[in-house]
Write a protein that binds this DNA or RNA. Sequence first.
RNA 1: UACCCCGUGGUGUAAUUGGUAACACUAGGGCUUUUGACGCCCUCAUUCUAGGUUCAAGUCCUAGCGGGGUAGCCA
Length: 572
Amino acid sequence: MSKKTAAPKDSCDSAEKAVSRHFIQQIIDADLVAGKSERRVHTRFPPEPNGYLHIGHAKSICLNAGLAREYGGKFNLRFDDTNPAKEEQEYVDSIMDDVRWLGADWEDRLFFSSDYFDQLYDWAVQLIEAGKAYVCDLDADAMREYRGSLTGPGKNSPFRDRSVEENLELFSKMKAGEFADGALTLRAKIDMTSPNLNLRDPVMYRIKRAHHHRTGDKWCIYPSYDYTHGQSDSIESITHSICTLEFENHRPLYDWFCDALGIHHPQQIEFARLNITYTVMSKRKLLLLVQENHVNGWDDPRMLTIRGLRRRGYTAESIRAFCERVGVTKVNSMIDRSWLEDAVREDLNEHAPRRMGVLRPLKVVLTNIAEGEQRICEASNHPKNPEMGTREVPLTREIYIEQGDFMEDGPKKFFRLKTGGAVRLRSAGIIDCGEILKNDAGEVVEVHCTFDPDMSRKVKGTIHWVSAEHAISAEVRLYDHLFATENPDKAAEGETFLDNLNPASLEVLAEAKLEPLLANAQAGEHFQFERTGYFYADPVDSIDGKPVFNRTATLRDSWAKAKAKGKGNVKK
RNA sequence: UACCCCGUGGUGUAAUUGGUAACACUAGGGCUUUUGACGCCCUCAUUCUAGGUUCAAGUCCUAGCGGGGUAGCCA
């Protein structure tokens, strides 16, 4: 990634043209000039371990880790694990793996909010002693009632004015397990008439007997997000606490706790979360897709989870580039799904070795090549990068070409094989179309051609092919959008986002014909099958000598586009 | 009918902080081509509206309109 110089003041020597800086960089630049936080930059990524990471998290990871790197600061990974009811070690493991894969390095700074439970408890006691927190008996329903509404003020809890001594004693008993789940809460004493609902005496602690993935059964009371997050940032000396827009209304609370406690006060900054067309992004919905088997797990290549994208064949580099391109603002926006495809194509175009693979085979017999004869063709592994070398591809009498590359009476603009036409076999030579064999249904089942090794002959089209004798058969999976509508969240009356699923999002080709070298493809390798797309040897289902390929992305296809538009371009 | 945030092309971001709308993607057109790929060139905006300040406004002011968020003992 490009290294942008950070320092606003003395770096004028670098004659580079001023790269535009997003609003968070501008805030940090100003903070640095003002000498805030000893001129440090320290960020963090704070996921709750209650699900798998998705592309939206990647934006946050790239942002936070990127800022730390850019300013020569630090980046922490902290699990916000304050709600044991939803959290699991499995998620912790997968999140660490995904963050690392994305290239964000937390070095030795892996933390858990649960590391701070003791400190948080002591601070709560401190707030009680200062008359800023109290134990409340209101149950959830009553509390909601007392809270008031969006437009009207709330009213004070009848328990708001308990003595410090009583509060201390009750809180201590809460911790000791003397009350039932939900019986009492500890609340911050702020302002029940505040127009910001978050300030209407928010809950700091609730009683919840649940096994915590790290602290086990040590605690039966757990701190809330609002009471935990800012202080955790503070403990870790975070300088800039970056989160998404929906926390804007929580910022006054974040500030209130840090101020009330008199501790290091990081700055919360909110940015817009990522939305992408043809998909849903909420953890809840992704979970539903998995639970109801609409997809084959969290790592289904159609999912925009990091695991899904990885298995689809997206590279970390392409995801970073995507996040960079998307930008950082406070504007709610919807990014076109094709940007993701574009980002992988850009990366894979440069790095993926070329191969030939026929997805839907049509047999072609080269009548002037003898049975048993084998010609060796030298094919380049990359058209623009000779350093990637060449490979040998066998050509024999019987070959397969793509069904779509033959059209009996192809129109003038159809540059592939057609009656009376000629086409180039990539890296091999030219074939001239001869006899066409059909079955009873009138479908073309075999085409006879003559082979002409003259490489210098000019023809308009070039197609890919494989030797029928040498090709390997492999399973190839093609993916389309998981959802059929741009914004699946907008469901019709009486329907849910699930009704917008695309029934054709997965197509499995059991018997694609691939050039022989592909038998050695290692799980996790990327290839471009020329003219058809980028493919990734599935790391789960591939076995030695028998790879399974997932299509990462198609190649751009202006012919298909022209055809789809139907206009006169085709027939002429 | 409360509070907070946000309104620049089809999409996403820029605009030396008041100086004459830029970049990327898409779309359309063309060139190139042993991938109809890649690459290259060209085309596409009364900056939400209405007033105002100014020599000069996307940037400042006023009013309106539109979009989003918020009433978990979730994060």
